[in-house]
Every structure is written in structure tokens, then in C-alpha cells.
Amino acid sequence: MKYWYNVDTGEVQTDDTKSRGELMMGPYDTEAEARNALASARARTEQWDEQDREWNSRGTSAPEADD
């Protein structure tokens, strides 16, 4: 069975009870993973933002093209 997090209601739902047309996150293997969907997404976004800042701080100058 898979679990889903309903962003609109804040409820964890199963495949059998999953709302249609709602903003859903998942599927997750466990109810606990689904319950923590927003925190997991926030942590991944913060990690990606930090990687972007590191990338940008290194500079992204392209090599000059020969004409």
C-alpha cells in the first residue's frame, strides 16, 4: 500500500482513500514518510538552494569562443 499527503487538508491518505484532483504529494512507502512530506520537501529545497549558492559563488564564466 502507498501513502499520500494531501496538501490542502493536511491528511495522510492511502491509495484507496486518495482524493482526486487535490494537490497530493507522494507516493510514500510509509504513513510516517507521508506525514513528514512537507518537512522533507523543505529540507530538499534548502539543500538545493545551498548547492545553487555554492555554484553561483564559484562563478560561471564561459570560455571565450574563437572566431
Rank of each mutant, 00 (worst) to 15 (best):
D66I: 01
W55S: 03
V7Q: 06
Y5S: 00
E31Y: 14
E31K: 13
E46Q: 11
D49W: 04
E54F: 00
Y28A: 06
R44Q: 09
N56S: 06
A62Y: 11
G59W: 05
K2Q: 14
E50G: 05
E54A: 02
M24T: 11
V7F: 08
P27Y: 05
T45M: 01
G10N: 11
S61W: 15
W55N: 05
M25S: 06
E33M: 04
D29C: 02
E11M: 04
M1C: 01
E50S: 06
Y3D: 07
G10K: 10
E11K: 14
R35H: 14
D52F: 05
E31P: 09
A41V: 11
W48T: 14
P63E: 12
E64L: 08
G26D: 04
N6M: 02
D49R: 07
A62H: 12
P63K: 09
E31D: 11
A43I: 00
W55H: 09
G26V: 03
A65H: 15
S40A: 15
E11L: 05
A32E: 15
E50F: 01
R44Y: 06
A34N: 11
N36W: 07
A62T: 10
R42N: 10
D49H: 05
S61K: 13
T17K: 02
Y28V: 07
K18H: 08
A41D: 08
A37L: 11
S19P: 02
Q13P: 00
